[in-house]
Measured scan of single mutants.
Amino acid sequence: NQASVVANQLIPINTALTLVMMRAEVVTPMGIPAVDIPRLVSMQVNRAVPLGTTLMPDMVKGYA
Rank of each mutant, 00 (worst) to 15 (best):
R39W: 11
S4E: 01
L19G: 06
A34N: 06
S42Y: 10
A3Q: 07
V27W: 02
A64K: 13
T54L: 05
L40C: 04
L10A: 06
Q44S: 14
G31Q: 02
V20T: 10
T28R: 02
D36I: 05
P38C: 07
T18A: 09
M56L: 07
D58Q: 10
V49F: 02
N46G: 14
R23W: 05
V60G: 01
A64V: 11
S4C: 05
T28F: 04
P33D: 15
M59C: 06
D58E: 14
T15H: 09
M43T: 10
T18M: 08
V41C: 07
T28H: 06
D36A: 08
T53P: 00
D36N: 07
V27R: 06
T15G: 06
P57N: 09
V49H: 02
S4N: 01
Y63I: 05
R23M: 14
D36S: 06
N8G: 15
M22R: 00
N46P: 03
A48E: 13
P50S: 13
A16W: 06
R47P: 02
I11G: 01
P57H: 10
A64Y: 03
V41S: 04
K61F: 07
L19Q: 06
V60K: 00
R47G: 13
S4G: 05
G31W: 02
P29S: 08
R23P: 02
A16R: 05
Q44G: 05
L55S: 00
V20D: 13
A48Q: 11
A3R: 03
P29Y: 12
A64M: 14
I13R: 05
A7P: 01
A24T: 10
R47H: 15
N14K: 05
L40R: 00
R47V: 13
I32Y: 02
V6Q: 04
T28Q: 14
Q44Y: 12
L51A: 12
A7I: 04
Q44N: 07
A64W: 03
V41M: 07
P29N: 15
M43L: 13
I32Q: 00
N1T: 15
T15L: 04
V60C: 03
L19C: 05
E25F: 03
P29F: 11
S42V: 03
N14H: 11
Q44E: 07
M21W: 02
Q44C: 07
A3K: 04
L55Q: 00
T15R: 08
I13N: 09
M21T: 03
S42D: 05
